[in-house]
Amino acid sequence: MTDDEILAEFRASDALLEGHFLLSSGRHSGHYLQCARVLMNPARAARLAKALADRIPSDLRASIATVVSPAMGGVIIGHEMGRALGIDAMFVERPSGTFELRRGFALQPGEKVLLVEDVVTTGLSSREAIAAVEAAGGKVVAAASLVDRSGGTADFPVPFFPLIALDFPTYAPDEVPAALAATPATKPGSRAKP
């Protein structure tokens, strides 16, 4: 899929929003990608996952035994990536603030894992999920996301494969431009902030 085709999928599902948003990373933005909307259609989710799976080099793809994604945002794309790769998919969640495997999910020692996210802004959630996989005995060999909006700054200890990179600016709370600050911020993400 080309970038234009990928963006067309987001626009067709009204998943590309404009306004003032407080992202789960704590940063502010005038744009928000509601990946839950783009993934709510199973055929669209399957197309996007197949395109994302195709971005991973075949030798690396062949070594992956399991897909793990962080809840909530990564659950659907993680499941679809499991389908696209023909392997199991599970997720980590934060019942007490730290990611962990639950619901009977378990990894074998050294099991090779692909970590899959919906959107990466700073990479914090992905790094926390990688730590949870390693604590559970797995070995993350690559990370992937539908969207990289980090501007190339997300730092992972493994190769990272986004389906599309979007350069929507984000701002620290003390850097929000006056025009954006004039509009009340909404929190569309799934991570609760204190």
Rank of each mutant, 00 (worst) to 15 (best):
A89Q: 09
G26D: 12
T170Q: 14
E18W: 00
A84C: 06
I164S: 08
I164M: 10
I56H: 08
R37C: 03
I130T: 06
S69K: 08
A181E: 11
E18G: 04
R44A: 06
G151A: 14
V113L: 04
V92M: 12
V68D: 05
T122Y: 03
Q34C: 03
Q108W: 10
E111C: 08
E111G: 09
P173I: 04
A36K: 11
P159K: 05
T186M: 03
T122K: 02
T170G: 10
I87W: 04
V141F: 01
I56Q: 12
V176P: 08
P95L: 07
E175I: 02
S145L: 10
A45G: 09
L124C: 07
P169S: 09
G86Q: 09
M40E: 15
M72D: 06
S150Q: 08
D14Q: 09
G123D: 11
A65T: 10
I76Q: 04
A172E: 15
C35R: 01
K50F: 07
A71F: 01
L124Q: 13
F168R: 10
K193A: 11
G138E: 04
A71D: 00
S126T: 12
K112Q: 15
S63H: 02
V158W: 02
G73N: 06
F99H: 13
F21C: 00
D88S: 14
V113D: 03
A106R: 13
L16R: 14
R27Y: 09
H31S: 13
G73D: 07
D167Y: 05
V67R: 11
D174L: 00
L48D: 05
G78T: 09
V120F: 04
E5Q: 15
I87M: 06
V67L: 11
R191I: 15
E100S: 13
D14T: 03
H28R: 13
K187V: 04
D88W: 07
A49H: 02
P109H: 05
G19P: 12
G86E: 12
V120W: 04
A178W: 12
V68S: 12
G86H: 02
L85D: 09
S96M: 12
G74S: 14
A178L: 10
H31I: 02
M81P: 02
E111D: 10
A15E: 06
L146K: 00
P57E: 07
L114Y: 04
H20S: 08
S63M: 09
A182K: 00
V38N: 05
V120L: 01
G19Y: 02
V140K: 11
P42A: 07
L107S: 07
R149F: 02
L60A: 13
G73C: 09
L114D: 03
A181K: 04
H79L: 09
G82R: 03
V120C: 02
D88H: 14
V75A: 10
L85W: 06
D155R: 14
F156R: 12
M72T: 15
V141G: 07
E80L: 08
G30K: 09
H31L: 03
A49P: 01
V158L: 03
L52Y: 13
A71T: 01
A71S: 14
L16Q: 13
A43S: 10
S145C: 13
P157M: 05
